[in-house]
Design a protein around this nucleic acid. Sequence first.
DNA 1: GCGCTTCGACGAAGCGCTTCGACAGAGTAT
DNA 2: ATACTCTGTCGAAGCGCTTCGTCGAAGCGC
Lengths: 338, 338
Amino acid sequence: MATMQDVANLAGVSLSTVSYTLTGKRPVSAATRARIEAAMAELGFRRHAAARALAARRTHVLALAYPTYGVALGATLNDIVRGAVEAARESGYELVLWPVDSTEPEVLRELAGQRTADGVLLMEVALDDPRIEAVESVGVPCAMIGRTQDPGDRVWVDIDFEDALTQAVEHLWGLGHRSIAFLNRSQAQLDTHYGPAVRARDAYVAAMTEHGLDPLTVACDVTPPAGRRVGTELLASHRDLTALIVMNELALFGVASALREADLQVPRDFSVLAVAIAEDISQMYDRPLSFLAAPGPDQGRLAVRGLLDLIEGRTTTGGTNLRCALHPQSTTGPVPVP
Amino acid sequence: MATMQDVANLAGVSLSTVSYTLTGKRPVSAATRARIEAAMAELGFRRHAAARALAARRTHVLALAYPTYGVALGATLNDIVRGAVEAARESGYELVLWPVDSTEPEVLRELAGQRTADGVLLMEVALDDPRIEAVESVGVPCAMIGRTQDPGDRVWVDIDFEDALTQAVEHLWGLGHRSIAFLNRSQAQLDTHYGPAVRARDAYVAAMTEHGLDPLTVACDVTPPAGRRVGTELLASHRDLTALIVMNELALFGVASALREADLQVPRDFSVLAVAIAEDISQMYDRPLSFLAAPGPDQGRLAVRGLLDLIEGRTTTGGTNLRCALHPQSTTGPVPVP
DNA sequence: GCGCTTCGACGAAGCGCTTCGACAGAGTAT
DNA sequence: ATACTCTGTCGAAGCGCTTCGTCGAAGCGC
């Protein structure tokens, strides 16, 4: 493994000059730079990350705590990851994933404490997330995707569920639907006041009320069989229903089965609109799904930018809510004529 | 941030003694060790990873190249990750995930070249995978989950598809089924001779032939809609079929729809057996799915062990094929009486 | 031609740890 | 008592970089 000293020798310059061509922190003449670059290419030189990190007191690595349990569909998380990776690279940082679940903050404390990353991104943040304290306790900056009950002046990026559900109700209202139900996340999430579930429900109720409609919310476990069960019950007990808003990735697939079994053709007899799902997931559905796209890549990107502001001592943006874009496709249509 | 020197001062010993209590590479008396540990606790000392890596020429980090595109279901990959994390920790290593797709070996070369990890694990290895050369070109050991056309004496851990399909056919044969089809991965994968698809198909054909049965294989894109389409066609064109072996995670869900639409009750009228899927995925099915469990955690574990053998200069195991365990549940049953 | 600034390059001092050689003192064998 | 081996500890030399202070050589106005 060639070192910077080898490069310097071959190029006939001093070690520090090589360093400066690499970091750009001091000017280097074009001629010298060319010689150095030639030498680096010839030797196949690569900076030794540990040495760099030690000397510069910066690893140029950002870590994203990546849950490995209970992640049935990778697409949603991966959208975020891709946005984050991109933003990090643009700023000369690498993003790595730490496979750590929310239940093991100690692992996070250990990892962060060794200073293997300059900052940590937390995804799927719970209302009272012990990981934040763990990371901050060892003096490492962190940013969250989602947000805690009281984020203070921390950096966070969340989805604008209020806007998303307003858009959803309005889209269906515009198509003539007057009986629109909302299939939410699990009761357990509601019971613990999990932000997305609560905020989406409240926004849905508000939007319905505003249009003079009766809201109808059902909680549903995050699995296809649960979606099928809940969907079937819902269709049986509310025969006047013509549209369903679903904010539950996995239940969505069960809902499709329930509709088929109830002999309802989509969108002729019934409309389905998914909220806050990744585009990849919409493509797994029977037919082109009408959906409000979760801003996954942007969430990742913005969270990284905010984290870098924190790391590099710039003033931070605080929190941001990101809108979901409506993609009306083939599962929403005009209300059926009776 | 307390350094080892701070700990040494507080404990009244030399820096090197602190190091030796941490690494255990030289004996330290119980009394001294106790003083040092007390000092470390008091100062909240944590080893600086970069300094350690630089001095020891070892990062104690293993990287797993983690694809973020085309991963609809995270469960399968995550099983592997969990096994790998566990095995790494047992040996005093941390596992991190590098979000790098198979299509960008250069990123991998860059990352590995900076020596931020002592070894790299590759998952979803293709027959001719450019990532292997990329990692090895910078002198970093690597191990694969799956395997290339010609793995040479590299370390790999794969699924024993021959055994899995033999088990599958035998399970159904035992239940009296004589008309058993096999729903494979995509035609594209078969065309490129992708190992799992080819080996599974060949093993299925062999097992069927051995029992004097006619094999019937269909390729299917890895999406639920494709599974529904192919499933529907298959059921329509082969009315005598009583069982289907599926080795296609996502198509599986489409197959469920196809069966329901064809008014076939499972397992009364028809049996479905999934091959090489993660247990989490089996739980997403309508009813308790009969399946051959992919040995994900064991794949991760063994791959890590093999990689560590390589890194620490022990003799390596070469390749290993892991068996899938049969979990007969509620989607396979006796052949229906005509 | 003088002193002035500016540019580009150099040398050396660390960053926080591991590890090697050395060595004092206790234990054992002679 | 002598010579020897262990144990447990210390000091110092790096690991491969970044970065600070420094300084020669141009380039400039007058």
